[in-house]
Design a protein around this nucleic acid. Structure first.
Length: 474
RNA sequence: GGCGGUGUAGCCAAGUGGUAAGGCAGAGGUCUGCAAAACCUUAAUCGUCGGUUCGACUCCGAUCCCCGCCUCCA
């Protein structure tokens, strides 16, 4: 299979370090608020990728961090009159709730910056010892120009970076650095009430970039397969991770860099961000949108493409999920009726063709659009078989099995889709359906329609088929 | 200014040097007592201007629009 590697800006044949196993690290959120749909997009993009690897039979070790200390955390905690650890606890919990609702698999490991302070200090000290870092008044900075390949990931030219940097100089900090493009590995404590840990350079806390280098190499090794994150992290975050990690280990840090596209909002399709005040949290959306719909919508856009978040696009996703639901229900109905099975070579052929097309599409840098197209083209073949006098029950069973596996790659739980859990009013519904069937036999259409309306008001949808009337919940 | 992405029917969205997949919505039809669901039929010459070619949406050049990164950010 092929993946688009940001490092080389082209699709490359994917080969894991260890056959059958994949190590991947994905930058997680800073936990100072509910996650927004941009965070969700990243989590969903890489969860979908992970699930496809698992579909293919790979064993995936998936590490994703929580940034639980940094300026934003400190500011927010201050604003709320609480502590950084309390803030972190609260929003990590919220993160897990939201991602569970979106059917995102928990990471194999969810390390946290504040739980790795000794390892971070060792890492920084190692960089100082090697001459890649220097201490100034309790801060430690990375000497970017010392790292020969600085800028390789984002194709940035160091000289031009300096120009850019000079426009945004944070005067005070810049004064301490040897060079404007140097970045902080360790930040000295600025105020007595600021959260801090003891270090060889005095009290302080880790810089943002260092935690990812430390945690990824600690849990996945000096070199690992895949590192993911949003496009906005390419520079400087990932650039800096490479510089830190490779300077320390002398090994190639990551073989494949994958970056997901943004979520845009509104008619102007602006990037969603806090500073533009147009961000939407998952927590809020899920008050009114079915989590499966949001999940499917975001998973159905290729990870590198931009997603425009809009009501209309969500509705389209909901419509498609509804088609899957209807087909699954109809198939289940046929599988449980008493008619004889009859082989349908066309359906059998379509099934294997779809499987092939689905996998070929996903093997091509996770081309989810083409993978879905393959499934869409299969539906009419299946539905036609379902509607025929004698269906191919063996083939339909295979279809259900395959569809479930395919939908799971997108994070959609087919079982939840058709959720036919029984409830206390089941017997009442059955009775009404039976009464309606009797009324229909007597051609009492008025009564028949009355019952249907009554059921509809209860959220029950009826389907009259040659094999009898079936009902399901909306 | 540097780097990168994007522009295909109302919307979402594939794709290739040889005459534009698929989905949604819309329209028509079939099935149905009527519905629902399903099935069938149905629409674009691919931002603009040049060039290469027997032939380009796909290659080259120019140009325009939009979006992002270069500063915290998924």
């Amino acid at each position: 299979m092929k993946v688009f590697n940001t490092l080389t800006r082209q699709k490359e044949e994917f080969k894991p370090l260890v056959p059958g196993q994949i190590s991947m690290y994905v930058c997680g959120p800073t936990v100072y608020n509910y996650i927004h749909i941009g965070n969700a997009r990243s989590a969903i993009a890489f969860d979908t990728i992970r699930r496809y690897f698992e579909y293919k039979g790979y064993q995936v070790k998936y590490v994703s961090n929580f940034t639980d200390v940094d300026d934003k955390m400190i500011n927010e905690a201050r604003a709320e009159g609480t502590t950084v650890p309390e803030l972190a606890e609260r929003y990590i919990k919220a993160f897990l709730e939201d991602t569970t609702a979106l059917n995102i698999e928990p990471a194999t490991l969810h390390p946290r910056a504040t739980h790795e302070i000794p390892a971070i200090i060792d890492f920084v000290q190692n960089l100082i010892d090697k001459g890649y870092a220097y201490e100034v008044d309790g801060d430690v900075y990375y000497r970017a120009k010392k790292f020969a390949n600085y800028g390789q990931l984002s194709d940035q030219n160091i000289d031009q970076l300096e120009e850019g940097a000079s426009k945004h100089v944070n005067d005070e900090e810049q004064g301490r650095k040897e060079d404007p493009i140097d970045f902080a590995l360790w930040k000295g404590q600025k105020a007595p009430d600021e959260i801090a840990w003891d270090s060889p350079w005095g009290k302080g806390r880790p810089g943002w970039h260092i935690e990812c280098s430390v945690m990824s190499t600690k849990y996945l090794g000096d070199t690992f397969d895949i590192h993911g994150g949003g496009q906005d992290l390419e520079f400087p975050h990932h650039e800096n991770e490479i510089a830190q990690s490779e300077a320390k280990t002398g090994q190639k840090f990551v073989n494949y860099w994958l970056h997901n596209g943004f979520v845009t909002v509104g008619k102007d399709e602006e990037k969603m961000s806090k500073s533009l005040h147009n961000f939407v949290t998952v927590h809020d959306i899920l008050q009114k949108v079915d989590p499966q719909v949001l999940r499917f919508f975001m998973a159905s856009v290729q990870y590198r493409s931009q997603i425009n978040y809009s009501e209309e696009n969500l509705e389209q996703a909901a419509t498609i999920l509804n088609r899957f639901k209807n087909t699954l229900e109809d198939v289940e109905g046929r599988l449980s009726d008493q008619t004889a099975s009859q082989a349908d070579p066309e359906l059998t052929a379509a099934l294997s063709k779809t499987k092939e097309a689905f996998e070929a599409a996903m093997d091509d840098d996770f081309n989810v659009q083409n993978a879905l197209t393959a499934i869409y083209e299969l539906l009419p073949v299946v539905n036609s078989n379902v509607n025929s006098a004698a269906s191919d029950k063996e083939a339909l069973k295979t279809f259900v099995k395959n569809l479930k596996a395919w939908l799971l790659v997108f994070g959609v739980d087919a079982g939840r889709l058709v959720k036919s859990e029984s409830s206390e009013d089941d017997s009442e519904i059955e009775a009404l359906v039976a009464e309606r069937t009797k009324a229909r036999q007597e051609k009492n259409w008025a009564r028949s329609d009355e019952i249907r309306d009554q059921l509809q008001a209860m959220g029950i949808v009826l389907k009259d088929t040659p094999q009898g009337t079936r009902w399901s919940r909306e």
